[in-house]
Amino acid sequence: MTAEAPRHQRADGGVEIVFGVARGRTVLRHLYQSSPMRVLFPDAEPGTPITGALVNTAGGLAGGDMVRVQARVEEGATATLCTPAAEKLYRSLGPETRIGTALHVGPGAVLEWLPQETILFDRARLRRRLDVELSPGARLLATEMLVFGRAARGERFREGFLHDAWRLRVNGRLRWADALRIEVPDEALEDRFGFAGAGGFATLLYAGADAAERLPVLRDLAGPLGAATVPREGVALIRWLGPAMPVRAALAAAIPALRAALFGLPPALPRLWTT
């Protein structure tokens, strides 16, 4: 007799969160959470929006795990969603890890989507999608960063799979779409016309009616590892590519400057990025 292959327990959970306005300030209207995901609400620093901290209580995600995040910011509200630490994608035994995020920003509302980096362990397999719906007058500042392997241990992402897709709609119409697919071994990670052996890759996107006017500021913030552009009307972005720590440092320097320039917030990172 042959023993059956072991069946591993997989995570399948997520969060639903809604922010609205009551008595002139942004408040939490709805929260649903399912393990391994939780949302915590640390006290906001003076002059900063209400902040939801997305916490993975498992400490990381493995092959076969599924996570869904749905967030809505109602008309006139302002909110920040971030994470207290990097998300770790462990080596997979075959199945993909799936992460789906859907953000809806109501008329005149502002959302900051500022998670910390995602670390792809060697042999991780990740399929991730971010869908954003903006209403007229809504604004969004969103960031994502990928680290190809555990840099502190000298590990490289040499085998595995990644499919990372963004979809941005304004008033129901597709405004910007982007996707990154890597299946390694893949020459693109090492090719000088691809990722050139980079350890980190980060994207910062601003969506708003004044996006084109903000391009000079974004170019100043891009630095030697980055470049800024306006790919479509109402969308401006910076992308950085290089060693993981300098890329993170460049992203961490750009966020405070843009929070101040775009939204009149204090020029600081969310506290969870530094504690």
Rank of each mutant, 00 (worst) to 15 (best):
Thr2Leu: 15
Pro6Lys: 08
Arg7Gln: 13
Asp12Tyr: 08
Val15Leu: 15
Glu16Thr: 15
Ile17Gln: 10
Val21Asp: 10
Ala22Thr: 12
Ala22Asn: 13
Ala22Ser: 15
Val27Ala: 11
Leu28Met: 14
Gln33Ile: 07
Gln33Tyr: 07
Arg38Phe: 05
Val39Phe: 04
Pro42Trp: 05
Ala44Leu: 02
Glu45Tyr: 12
Pro46Met: 11
Ile50Gln: 14
Gly52Lys: 05
Gly52Arg: 11
Asn56Trp: 01
Asn56Phe: 04
Gly60Trp: 06
Gly60Lys: 06
Leu61Thr: 06
Ala62Leu: 12
Gly63Ile: 04
Met66Gly: 14
Arg68Glu: 15
Arg68Thr: 15
Val69Cys: 11
Gln70Arg: 14
Glu74Arg: 12
Leu81Gln: 09
Leu81Gly: 02
Thr83Asn: 05
Pro84Gln: 09
Glu87Ala: 13
Leu89Pro: 03
Tyr90Asp: 02
Glu96Gln: 14
Arg98Pro: 05
Leu103Thr: 10
His104Trp: 14
Glu117Val: 00
Ile119Asp: 00
Phe121Gly: 05
Arg123Ile: 02
Arg123Trp: 06
Ala124Phe: 05
Arg125Ser: 13
Arg125Leu: 04
Arg129Trp: 09
Leu130Cys: 12
Leu130Thr: 14
Ser135Arg: 14
Leu140Trp: 09
Leu141Pro: 11
Ala142Phe: 06
Thr143Leu: 03
Leu146Ile: 02
Gly154Leu: 02
Glu155Arg: 00
Glu155Ser: 01
Glu155Pro: 00
Arg158Ser: 13
Gly160Thr: 03
Phe161Thr: 05
Leu162Asn: 05
Asp164Ser: 03
Ala165Ser: 11
Leu168Ala: 00
Asn171Thr: 12
Asn171Arg: 13
Ala177Tyr: 14
Ala177Leu: 13
Asp178Tyr: 02
Leu180Cys: 07
Ile182Leu: 15
Glu183Asn: 09
Pro185Tyr: 12
Asp186Pro: 06
Asp186Glu: 11
Asp186Met: 03
Glu187Gly: 14
Ala188Trp: 13
Leu189Ala: 11
Arg192Lys: 09
Phe195Arg: 07
Ala196Lys: 05
Ala196Thr: 08
Ala196Glu: 07
Ala198Asn: 01
Ala198His: 04
Leu205Cys: 10
Gly208Ala: 09
Gly208Pro: 06
Asp210Met: 07
Ala212Phe: 02
Glu213Tyr: 03
Leu221Thr: 05
Pro224Leu: 00
Gly226Cys: 07
Ala227Thr: 08
Thr229Ser: 15
Glu233Trp: 01
Leu237Val: 10
Trp240Tyr: 05
Leu241Glu: 04
Leu241Ser: 08
Pro243Leu: 10
Met245Pro: 12
Val247Glu: 07
Val247Tyr: 09
Ala250Gly: 11
Ala252Tyr: 09
Ala252Phe: 09
Ile255Tyr: 06
Pro256Asp: 04
Ala261Leu: 07
Ala261Phe: 08
Leu262Arg: 02
Gly264His: 09
Gly264Val: 04
Leu265Ser: 06
Pro266Val: 12
Ala268Lys: 13
Leu269Cys: 10
Pro270Gly: 10
Pro270Glu: 09
Arg271Trp: 02
Thr274His: 02
